[in-house]
């Protein structure tokens, strides 16, 4: 990974990102706005499952917010890639970055499984469901996984050694 990062840093694409002064702040701003939208969307779904918010069914809440999670994650894959191309040795070999990606995979897996489950059997996710305790526990774990993505992501900036 270190070798690949070194190679990427030497490409002309990396030079373009570094020399275009407005590009990195713009990408980061879009990235942060998407972080906010994903995090709030996740919280809205988890809060509805946990009963902190009451309006609409779990299925309706999922229908409202799950597309935002996938769309914003796709946008962040693009903005994140541009940032990596600009400074590959900052992120790719970093333990924090790798943990962020690991937890992202876990958090996305939770979201995909939840989205499929609620689409196939909306009734099972309603408040009177016998599986409510298990669903609440899953909601907390999934939210924890998304929080871990944010925490590891922020920590990348504080362990740069190059």
């Amino acid at each position: 990974m270190e070798g690949f990062a070194q190679w990427l840093a030497g490409t002309s694409a990396s030079a373009v990102v570094q020399k275009t002064l407005w590009l990195i702040p713009l990408m980061q701003t879009i990235h942060i706005v998407c972080v906010a939208l994903v995090f709030t969307s996740v919280v809205m779904i988890e809060f509805r499952i946990l009963g902190y918010t009451k309006w609409g069914s779990v299925a309706e809440t999922a229908h409202r917010f799950v597309p935002w999670i996938f769309t914003c994650v796709a946008v962040m894959a693009v903005t994140g890639s541009v940032l990596i191309i600009g400074e590959p040795t900052r992120s790719l070999p970093s333990f924090e970055f790798q943990m962020k990606m690991l937890f992202l995979a876990v958090a996305l897996a939770f979201t995909i499984v939840f989205a499929r489950s609620v689409r196939r059997n909306a009734q099972a996710w309603e408040d009177n469901s016998s599986a409510r305790t298990a669903h609440s526990a899953l909601a907390v774990v999934a939210l924890g996984a998304w929080c871990a993505v944010v925490i590891w992501g922020r920590w990348i900036a504080y362990t740069v050694q190059h």
């Binding site: 906010a36 939208l37 709030t40």
Partner: peptide
């Protein structure tokens, strides 16, 4: 960041 995410979202 968690707090501003909720504010913005």
């Amino acid at each position: 960041i968690f707090a501003i995410s909720m504010v913005f979202g």
